[in-house]
Structure formats: structure tokens, C-alpha cells
């Protein structure tokens, strides 16, 4: 399997504050990679740099071999992003929003009509597709943002806190979808502090703390390196992140 996401010495500073401090990692095609950390650890900042929303202070991000800084269009064309807070255009209907995103990625509405139908059905939005997003609940907005990220069949799906605001049905639906897309070859890079989600879905994980990666690998590798062989991810995570003091 080839490398889909490669991060090298990535840093981000805001004035004198360093949010992300020279992190490096790589994620292979079809892999589900979880990025764990406490609040304010630097997860969302890292994700926003991967997606080209934030300009890194140093280092590089490559997606499918394309450098996000020097080849942003090529990198973005194969990347889907689901943010933690699904701010979308509330003046459009769900279906219109999906057409909009598809056209932004250079796809014609007629080409994506059938995949939009399938996504809306899968995410239980078919009945509300012609209503303004303004009238959608938080969970529905989260689901329409997911549909939008998937409508152009991305090779890399970057997901920030996927389960926030979702009901148990929605959460189950999303987890099943991620497993299926990964099986079909899509790489999923998700940031979360829901340890059970990470444990259930991930092939590999990294723990970011105060802007630096303090540990990464498979679940077994993480347990082995922390010396907590028979412990859950929660216990491993707490052990690793409590070793160094931090501010919430």
C-alpha cells in the first residue's frame, strides 16, 4: 500500500504560542488513522493545516504525493473534510448544497445525481433534501457535511471530532460508513477525543499532547510502549497524557 498522507516536521505558531510543534507521521492508503489528544492539544490545528485552511509555520504536508503548499489544487481535489462544527450554507437546501460542492470540485450536477441520491438515502436525509439547511438539526447538518465530503469520492477523508452532536443511530451509521469506505480504499484520518471510537475504528493511532506527538502506532504498539499491556486505550491515553502537565 502506498502512502496517502505524509506529514513532515509540521509546525504552527500563533505569536509566541506554539500550537503544533514539528510533528511527523504518515498514513497509508485505505488506513483508518486516529489522532488523539486532550482539548487544546493541537488536533484541529493539524487537521486545518492538512486541508489547506491554515498556513503552516514550518514543515510540509503531502496528500497522494501532492504538496499542499505548492500543489494545493491537486491535493485538495482528492481530499474531503468534515469539520467538528458543521457550518454550511444555510440558505441552500441539502441537495443544492451537494450540487454546489460537486461543482466546486469540477463535477457536473448530472454526473453526481445518482451518487447524491445514494448518499442522501444512506444518511437518512432523503425526506429533507429539499428543505433549507437552516431548518436542519445539528446532527442533520453533520450528516449533510459528511455527504458533501463524500460526494466527490475523496481518496483521503479528514474528519474532525466525528461523533460530536450525533445521536446513537447517527454515530453507528458514521462508524459503519468509515469502515466500508476504508475497505474500499479511502484513507481516513480522524481526530477525536472519544477513545472508544478510536479504539473501535483505528488501524493505527497517534497521541498529540501540547503540540507534539508523544506516541504513535497500532493499539498493541501503544500498549507495549507504555508498559500497560492489558489496559484499555483510555488507561493508556490517561497514563501518557498525565505524565506531562498541561492546560485545558
Amino acid at each position: 500500500m502506498s502512502t496517502m498522507l505524509e506529514i513532515t516536521d509540521l509546525s504552527k505558531s500563533f505569536g509566541s504560542y506554539t500550537a503544533v510543534n514539528s510533528i511527523s507521521l504518515s498514513v497509508k492508503e485505505g488506513e483508518i488513522f486516529s489522532f488523539l489528544g486532550v482539548n487544546g492539544a493541537g488536533k484541529t490545528t493539524t487537521l486545518r493545516m492538512i486541508c489547506g485552511i491554515l498556513k503552516p509555520s514550518g514543515g510540509s504536508v503531502k496528500i497522494g504525493g501532492f504538496d499542499v503548499a505548492s500543489q494545493p489544487r491537486d491535493a485538495k481535489r482528492i481530499t474531503g473534510y468534515i469539520p467538528d462544527r458543521p457550518y454550511v450554507y444555510t440558505g441552500l437546501t441539502g441537495r443544492e448544497y451537494l450540487y454546489f460542492v460537486a461543482e466546486l470540485y469540477g463535477l457536473e450536477a448530472s454526473e453526481v445525481d445518482s451518487s447524491i441520491d445514494a448518499l442522501l438515502s444512506e444518511y437518512m436525509l432523503r425526506d429533507r433534501q429539499d428543505e433549507l439547511i437552516d431548518s436542519y438539526s445539528h446532527g442533520m447538518r453533520q450528516r449533510i457535511a459528511t455527504c458533501a465530503a463524500l460526494v466527490m469520492r475523496p481518496k483521503l477523508l479528514v474528519v474532525d471530532e466525528p461523533m460530536v452532536g450525533l445521536d446513537p443511530h447517527g454515530a453507528k451509521l458514521l462508524k459503519d460508513s468509515f469502515k466500508r469506505y476504508a475497505a474500499e480504499g479511502t484513507t481516513i484520518f480522524l481526530s477525536t477525543h472519544s477513545l472508544n471510537v478510536a479504539e473501535e475504528l483505528s488501524d493505527r493511532l497517534a497521541i498529540i499532547h501540547q503540540g507534539s506527538i508523544i506516541n504513535s502506532g497500532t493499539m498493541a504498539e501503544l500498549r507495549s510502549e507504555s508498559g500497560l499491556l492489558d489496559k484499555s486505550l483510555e488507561e493508556v491515553f490517561l497514563q501518557l497524557t498525565l505524565e506531562s502537565p498541561h492546560e485545558y
Partner: peptide, 14 residues
């Protein structure tokens, strides 16, 4: 564009 500006930021458009 408001808080939905991220949609354009992440799209393949300069």
C-alpha cells in the same frame, strides 16, 4: 460566506 468559508478554503480553487 461566514463560518462556511472553510468550504471554499478546502476546495480545489485558489
Amino acid at each position: 460566506e461566514g463560518r462556511a468559508f472553510w468550504i471554499l478554503q478546502t476546495s480545489p480553487m485558489s
